[in-house]
Design a protein around this nucleic acid. Structure first.
Length: 486
RNA sequence: UCCUCGAUAGCUCAGUCGGUAGAGCAGCUGACUGUUAAUCAGCGGGUCGCAGGUUCAAGUCCUGCUCGAGGAGCCA
């Protein structure tokens, strides 16, 4: 598009005239009734009255509700522009904010001028129509789905929760640590990793014994995308005392479920001079802070989710922030499950001490037994990671999973093994190379302290809060096996 | 990766016993109206996912493939 005039030049706005977020007009209408306002946004619907006016609903993302603007047919561009408006058109409208004469909205704008920035090229095939679309379909239109009620609400909820997380930690003296995305450690242990390489796949350099010669790769060694910032953030914890990460994480697992993404965001706090109980306290306080903020700040969006997505989502969060988390040991959890079996509960896999709990077990505990979040602590050491602190019983480690109804594991954490001899013993038992963990081991040699932390899956928290069924619908552009569009 | 289900108009779906393609919404035209996912009338819109097979005849039955969804495992 070489010499076409840029759409922006159409605006010719009086610089003194400020643009109003639609949210601000709904928030304090009394201050603005009778005043001239300008809004900019996208058309949801247009309804015409041959009495000489059109009603156009406009949204700008600032809040859930679109605002209704009333356009008189006396405008010079009424036939040429206004009558051509369809869902998705981008407009600016200026007029007087008035109490609505109709039902269904409190205020509206009596328009004196309306400008179109961009029409919708093919209204009959515009993918986002004013009707319910399936989530599957909208995933294929991820660049446009954000214009719908649902995804606009998800976006605001996501932002609200992210801000609440930062606020929570900041208020408590935590530092946000930007741990690396690319890692040279093949030591993180949390499953399959994505390789990072600039090697030419058609001419891969080889070592004499036939292996890939990563010394010729960009970093001079084999590198991957991180699966966790934990090991890195522990280093900063050992100087700053209270730290957290909040960033993207990558897992190359072939997981095809409503709870997994190949690229997701995770929050990983780490606290020095702390044990597992303090770790669980922190997780509980964080989650309650997040959901309290959500209920207070995004009542409009949550109301929508309660009406259209999950009736229980608001009451569930209210209960969540009021109730004390249940806290039980793994051993007690297994006992409860075994009792359930004795009473006739059917599980596909029999619960037994020493096994990792299945989804069905976790769901039973959190949904049937308690009906609220449960922190399960002290797991058998054989099913947990090398860095978790061994308990005195010799068979369990100070690990913690927080299980939530409807979603399962939302938090996984542990007290870390701070004793070098114990850590080395675990590395040997699990046949891991001590040398590869030299810097992690150094932390135990130089001023070691008890410390603990956990990982909170950000998208899982959003799924839990909104009641949406699929994690792919709470991240802008989901990456899952065989899916990396946009 | 395994199991189950699905794919028909731009979207959401129906399509009976195998008999040759339907509705609502959206779009367009008109009527009507301070309208509220407006209403009413009309119009246009289809390689029934792809490739084979059975049959006089396949959207429908069979086989393979592709894609999607849900569940399981792995995990946050």
């Amino acid at each position: 598009m070489p010499s076409a005039p840029r759409r922006r030049s159409m605006r010719c706005r009086d610089p003194a005239m400020s643009v109003h977020a639609i949210a601000s007009l709904f928030a304090s209408p009394a201050d603005r009734i009778g005043q001239e306002v300008t809004i900019q946004g996208w058309v949801r619907t247009r309804r015409d009255s041959k009495a000489g006016i059109s009603f156009v609903a406009i949204h700008d993302g600032s809040c859930f509700e679109p605002i209704q603007v009333v356009v008189p047919s006396s405008l010079p561009n009424y036939q040429s522009d206004v009558m051509r408006l369809t869902a998705g058109c981008a407009v600016a409208a200026t007029g007087t904010l008035v109490q609505s004469q109709g039902k269904g909205q409190s205020v509206e704008v009596q328009v004196t001028s309306l400008q179109v920035f961009g029409f919708v090229a093919d209204p009959d095939t515009y993918p986002i129509q004013p009707k319910q679309h399936s989530f599957e379909y909208l995933r294929e239109q991820a660049h446009l789905r954000i214009r719908t009620n649902t995804f606009g609400a998800v976006a605001r909820v996501r932002h609200c929760l992210a801000m609440a997380i930062h606020r929570f930690f900041h208020e408590r003296g935590f530092y946000w640590v930007h741990t690396p995305i690319i890692t040279g450690a093949d030591t993180e242990g949390a499953g399959q990793m994505f390789r990072v390489s600039t090697l030419d796949f058609l001419k891969v350099p080889r070592t004499p014994d036939g292996k890939v010669d990563f010394s010729q790769d960009f970093f001079g060694r084999e590198t991957h995308l991180t699966v966790s910032g934990q090991l890195n953030v522990e280093t900063w914890c050992m100087a700053l005392s209270k730290v957290y990460t909040f960033g993207p994480t990558f897992r190359a697992e072939n997981s095809n479920t409503t709870r997994h993404l190949a690229e997701f965001w995770m929050i990983e706090p780490e606290i020095a001079f702390a044990d597992l109980a303090q770790d669980a306290d922190l997780a509980e306080a964080l989650l309650k802070y997040m959901f309290t903020a959500l209920l207070n700040e995004r009542a409009d969006d949550m109301k929508f989710f309660a009406e259209r997505v999950d009736k229980e989502c608001i009451t569930r969060l209210q209960k969540f922030v009021e109730a004390k988390f249940e806290r039980i040991t793994y051993t007690e959890a297994i006992a409860l499950l075994e009792q359930a079996v004795a009473k006739g509960e059917k599980f596909e896999y029999a619960p037994k001490w020493g096994i990792d709990m299945q989804s069905e077990h976790e769901r039973y505990l959190t949904e049937k037994v308690f009906g609220r979040p449960v922190a399960v602590i002290n797991y058998p050491k054989d099913i947990k990671a090398f860095y978790m602190r061994q308990n005195d019983d010799g068979r369990t480690v100070a690990a913690m999973d927080i299980l939530a109804p409807g979603i399962g594991e939302i938090v996984g954490g542990s007290q870390r093994e701070e004793r070098l001899d114990m850590l080395d013993k675990r590395l040997e038992e699990m046949k891991l190379e001590k040398e590869a963990y030299w810097w992690y081991r150094d932390l135990r040699r130089y001023g070691t302290v008890p410390h603990a932390g956990f990982g909170l899956g950000f998208e899982r928290a959003i799924v839990y809060a909104t009641g949406l069924q699929n994690i792919r619908d709470v991240i802008p552009f989901p990456r899952t096996p065989k899916h990396c569009d946009f």
